[in-house]
């Protein structure tokens, strides 16, 4: 058999998955475009085509801007802060440390819990009076701090983001550690002999060698951030007000609480566009960086 040509029968191996996706993924997404120009409520089969009214209403409402802004803030902080902390921890662990395995496993434990359990633990941590942080602050005599973390317009979003970082940091640490283990020791020694300081060794030897793990970690956390739903849903219900609405949360609420499927679909189309744009930019920049490094 000519190895450049695949046997026709081989296509049967891909067919099931392909069909599955056409029916349950591509078709629904096409339907989404249809629903976005209707006043469909999700229950009554009769609906009218209303043109771009859904989009017009969305652009007039505060919830669109707020949820886009929150999603971007959520993504930016989890990506930047989460990865910097993870990288620092990985660097610490990569040094000659005893019980390395213990620390690595300990960082990974929160990842094992489901979002609902994590949300539950942290609601307890954040409780205004009896919570862990509030009790701790009271014990050391700081009673005049505002400890209403999840009920405050200015603090709720950041409190949720902290939980997300706490939950996902273990995975990033493991990926960075694996990358660090590929940095050749001789290269670092050579750098040292040439008189490079710690920062220079890191900047010009370690970091470029880490390019692949950086790409993977950033991609994973961008995807995770853009899809943020669980913690706003579990911990704050998008509130107070709409201050912790993310795109996905806003869509969910429009569709299932307010029963505005048409409007939710329109919001779906908008976030579709935003998320694809961000992903393309990320992939392109990271690919370029990785190649040049």
């Amino acid at each position: 058999m000519n190895s450049a040509v695949m046997k026709k029968t081989m296509y049967f191996f891909v067919l099931p998955a392909l069909l599955f996706y056409c029916i349950f993924w591509i078709f629904p997404i096409l339907k989404l475009f249809q629903y976005s120009v209707t006043d469909y409520n999700g229950y009554v089969q009769n609906f009218n085509y209303v043109g771009f009214n859904n989009f017009k209403t969305l652009f007039q409402e505060e919830v669109l801007v707020t949820s886009i802004k929150n999603t971007l803030v959520y993504t930016a902080i989890t990506v930047i802060l989460g990865n910097i902390i993870a990288l620092l921890l990985a660097l610490l662990l990569n040094a000659n440390i005893r019980a390395k395995g213990f620390y690595r496993s300990a960082f990974y434990i929160p990842t094992l819990f489901s979002a609902i359990v994590v949300g539950f633990i942290w609601s307890y941590v954040y409780m205004p009076q009896e919570g862990l942080i509030a009790s701790f602050l009271a014990k050391i005599g700081l009673t005049n701090w505002d400890t209403n973390f999840l009920g405050s317009y200015s603090k709720a979003l950041y409190s949720i983001i902290a939980v997300d970082i706490w939950k996902n940091i273990g995975t990033s640490v493991i990926i960075f550690l694996a990358g660090l283990q590929t940095v050749p020791h001789e290269l670092l020694e050579a750098g040292k002999i040439d008189g490079a300081g710690k920062w220079k060794l890191f900047r010009f030897i370690t970091l470029p060698m880490l390019a692949t793990s950086v790409t993977i970690n950033i991609t994973l956390s961008v995807i995770n951030g853009l899809k943020a739903f669980d913690f706003p849903f579990i911990m704050t219900n998008g509130g107070p007000g709409i201050s912790t609405n993310t795109l996905i949360y806003a869509m969910y609420k429009m569709a299932f609480t307010d029963q505005l499927f048409g409007k939710a679909s329109a919001l779906g189309i908008i976030s579709f566009a935003i998320i694809i744009a961000i992903t393309i930019v990320c992939v392109l920049t990271l690919n370029k960086k990785e190649v040049s490094a």
Partner: peptide
């Protein structure tokens, strides 16, 4: 591209219509 799309697209974009289909 397809694999990336399934991972990055808001899960709700296909879940909403799929919900209707199933309903």
């Amino acid at each position: 591209v397809w694999i990336l799309l399934v991972r990055v697209l808001p899960p709700i974009t296909f879940a909403l219509p799929l919900y209707i289909m199933m309903n």
